[in-house]
Amino acid sequence: MIGIFDFVGAVGLFGLRVIGSVFRIPFELEQIWRHIGEAGVRSLALVLSAGLALGVVMTLHTRGALVMFGATAMIPKLQSLGFFVEIGPLVAALLVAGRVGAGNGAVLADMRATEQIDAIEALSMDSFKFLVVPRVVACVIALPLLTVFMDFCGILGGYLSEYTLSHISLHLYLTRAFQGMQWSNFVPPTLKALVFGFIIGTISCFFGYTTNEGAEGVGRAATSSVVVSSLLIILADVILVKIIFLTFPGSAT
């Protein structure tokens, strides 16, 4: 039990240190840019394919029930609402947690094991600022963008699925998809991905940066990064959804 609190406290301090370091110079923009490429661009194919597949599957599942109620016109709206509000941010975060979180944990743990971090420190460089902060910032920036891509791929997959069944036009599908849509259905959930990105970056860097157990620690850091990141993302989602409902009452109806 104490171990859990110890871990929570350590991660909390680590996160605060990240936040505090973001606004201190040097901003390490080059590193941030590079890690955006690593976390964002290289995850794009994974996110796009997953979004497309999920869009198709979701329409196949929901269509039957809506047709039974005579609400076929609501299929596009249900698809867009589902992806914008929940599926897009959550699935994108979990995918990135699996890919980027494991990578960050493994790389930093390996650098720690091979004393590369010590070497950086020996060069009078802030290794935390140089290694951790750009990765967390990159995750925070990349994840909302990946979420938007995922949303669109989900809608596109839904359209392809619906088109094969009812030959609906793309224009009508998109019109219905955005009919009655509120900004609160899109902006807050997309910005929710910022938090997910912060969680992924912070947790994965924490396990990689603080581990010093050789090769075995590298594997453990990678595994723990994925497991803990995914778990915290889902738990944080519960809290964030409630916060969004409180902030934007209209989105709760």
């Binding site: 840019w33 955006i36 490429g37 964002g40 661009v41 794009l44 920036i141 990349a142 909302p144 963008l145 990946l146 938007v148 891509f149 949303d151 669109f152």
Partner: peptide, 11 residues
């Protein structure tokens, strides 16, 4: 990376 960011923001 630029295309990725711009595309995401555009969407």
């Amino acid at each position: 990376i630029g295309i990725f960011i711009v595309s995401g923001l555009a969407l």
